[in-house]
Computed example of a mutant assay.
Amino acid sequence: MDSPHGAAVKAEDFGLKGPRGWVFRGVRLDAEPGSLIAVEGPSGSGRTCLLLALTGRMKATEGHAEIAGHRLPRHMAAVRRVAALGPVTGVNELDQSLTVAEQLREGALLQRRYEGPVRALLRPRGERRAGAQARIDAALAAAGLDLATLPKGPRTSVRDLERLEAVRLSVAIALLGEPRLLALDDLDLKLSDTERAEAWSLLRSIAAAGTTVLAVCSEAPDGVTVLRTGAAEAEPATEATKDAKDAEPAEAAGAGPAAGTDTKTEETDDTTKGADDALAETGRA
């Protein structure tokens, strides 16, 4: 994970249209490998929708995007192979019933499954176990999570983690497969100002090591590439949310000419369900 290998992220008039109108459209972006990109906007403005579209987990209907040279929407499966999801509410959440160690082992097992099970089975069991532990250790270091500082160490329950610790754990699991693009939803949710600064510092360090990072937030810090959602002239978020659910993807999103300005929390629940449905259609998270 030390050598630069991030994905270039480009979009040109990227959009999605549902039965009642545009969910998002006109998205334009040109970010180099190793960039830190913020999708900024209020809750319910379409941020998760845009994140899922750019990671190959939601099919756009207008324009195109290109992730590490893979063109969307045609090559969604190829994009999913190079883009990993960190925490996405209702889609890719941590299992609250597991311990931290169990969650990490599960992530390593799933990663081995997708690496190529036949080749993996030919390696000695001890070598496989050592390789998995090495990946876990490297991912934890990159995510800045020291298990020894947790109340019960690796046996700490996921449900007992502080919000920032949970973010770090999710990031570590996403990094196990050494993705070229790391995407996180609601980065600054329930974080204090100090914790928010720590979270962005973490993402800067990951981007500096070569991985391109895409993070949804309510307010982006200085020095990052920003895509903003929620244009004032757009349709009410209630209608935009319905459009997003009836199309293939998640929530109402926008960048440039976009849909969705309302910030009511009840609408966020509906869009999260839509995101879950979109992910189920496209397969691997």
Rank of each mutant, 00 (worst) to 15 (best):
R123F: 07
T211Y: 01
K264V: 13
G116P: 03
V226Q: 04
I67R: 11
D276N: 14
K10I: 14
A252F: 13
T156D: 12
R168I: 14
N92P: 01
S3H: 06
R228I: 00
G90P: 14
M1K: 07
Q133A: 02
L176S: 05
P236L: 07
T241D: 02
A232Y: 04
A143G: 09
V226F: 01
R28G: 13
K242P: 00
R119A: 15
T229W: 03
D243Q: 00
G15Y: 10
A139L: 05
W200N: 00
A143E: 06
L36A: 07
R28W: 08
A143C: 10
T156G: 11
A278H: 08
E239R: 14
T238Q: 06
G86H: 12
E40G: 00
A199Q: 08
L161E: 06
I206V: 11
T89H: 14
D146F: 12
G131D: 07
E248K: 04
A143N: 10
A247I: 09
R228C: 05
F14W: 15
R80Q: 05
T55S: 00
E106I: 11
R20E: 09
A197F: 09
L122K: 04
A255T: 12
T265Y: 10
L202G: 01
E62S: 14
K264Y: 11
G254H: 02
L145E: 05
